[in-house]
Simulated assay, not measured.
Amino acid sequence: MMMKNSSNLAQTYQSATQMNAIGMTDFPTIGKVVDGLKMIDVPVPRPQAGEVAIKMMASSLYADELYAAQGTALGRFFGPKVVSETEPYIMGSSVAGIIVDVGENVTNWAVGQEIIAIPSQTPVHGVWAEYCCLNQDRLMPKPDGFSFVEAAGIKMAACVSWGAICYGRIKPNNRTLVIGASGGLGIMAVQYLKTLGAHVTGVCSGKNAEMVRAYGADEVVDYTQHNFADLAIQSQQFYDAVFDFVGGIDNEKAGFRALKKSGSYITVTGPVRFIGEKQLSWFELGKVFFHVASKSVLGRISGPRYIFGEMKPAKTVHDALTHAVKHQIKMPISQEIPFELDAVKQALSLILSHRAKGRMVIDFGNV
């Protein structure tokens, strides 16, 4: 889709030399990334060969971006190597916006097109700013029927949840269970599974039960009152697939107890609960990798299957978003955050508390 006032946006971009961005000028202390964020005045980026310049319209907030910045868990591989006043680290990886310039050798993209950015195995950073530049290979058109805020909010959750579901080999009437059903990934998974004809049980706290039912869950288990594995054993109603969006050994053990022998346990977080915020040593990371590898091998031999991770986003994002548009799947947007430092910091603090429901998205508006 082409933006009607794209020529004005392009002219504004060409005349701009400096812009506002949210980021850091010092390496953060573990657990104190939010405190270290600043509104920084930085040069406007210009597209190199194969790149496009994008006027940012919306960007979703993720805890993983903070974990990467502080170098915890797998963030040590993806986080910043240099942070200083002259080389600030700009936050953000979710992109929904409008192309305002194209570099040399760019094909199939033009000024005025509304786009979202496809995530890659290496996270994109530097988009919590008025403008950003990305390689053309990362882009796809913003889905019709989605606002910029909706597109930014659904993109990553759609990729991860749909990718996990692809591993589940779901068939109509399969019994499925979603751990963390009230979170962003869980809400998407519940909706996707229902479109595939599955019977869905969501696991969440009692206060979020009605919301999870509203998005399609056939049953809800309040984890503060019941153990879903005990209920499955008592009723002899076992599951064909368990999708774990929370993680932890306790959930893993319960998930296996609740599964059929031919079933699949799919986790996007692994055996350490909220692994992203943990400062794991190399030895501890090695234990995680060994645990995952051994469980995967044993699952192939004797069942149930154990699968860690989701399909590569580049392979799933198009199908995930196409399916979402076709079936009118939506990500609940709990808050639209203005591009203001205090508002963004407050939203990130709520996300880190693990109390956020739905998705919070920065709306750049007329910035």
Rank of each mutant, 00 (worst) to 15 (best):
F364C: 12
P47D: 08
K261G: 10
V292C: 07
H327M: 09
F289M: 14
L350N: 06
A189T: 06
F27W: 06
A157E: 01
F289Y: 14
N20W: 07
Q18T: 10
T201L: 00
P119G: 08
A347R: 11
Y13R: 10
V246A: 11
P123T: 07
G263S: 00
F78T: 15
Y215I: 09
Q11V: 03
K312N: 07
V83S: 12
H327W: 07
I116K: 12
L74P: 00
Q328P: 03
F228K: 06
N174P: 10
V111Y: 12
V367F: 13
K253A: 01
Q346R: 09
I275Q: 11
I307D: 00
L350G: 00
M19P: 06
V111W: 11
V149I: 14
T269M: 04
I337P: 06
V220P: 00
G303W: 01
V242L: 05
K312E: 04
C133P: 11
V272E: 15
A232P: 11
T201I: 10
E150F: 08
L259S: 05
S120W: 05
E51Q: 15
N105K: 15
L196K: 07
F290P: 00
E340S: 03
N173Q: 06
V82Q: 15
A314R: 13
R213I: 02
Q70E: 13
E340I: 05
T72R: 09
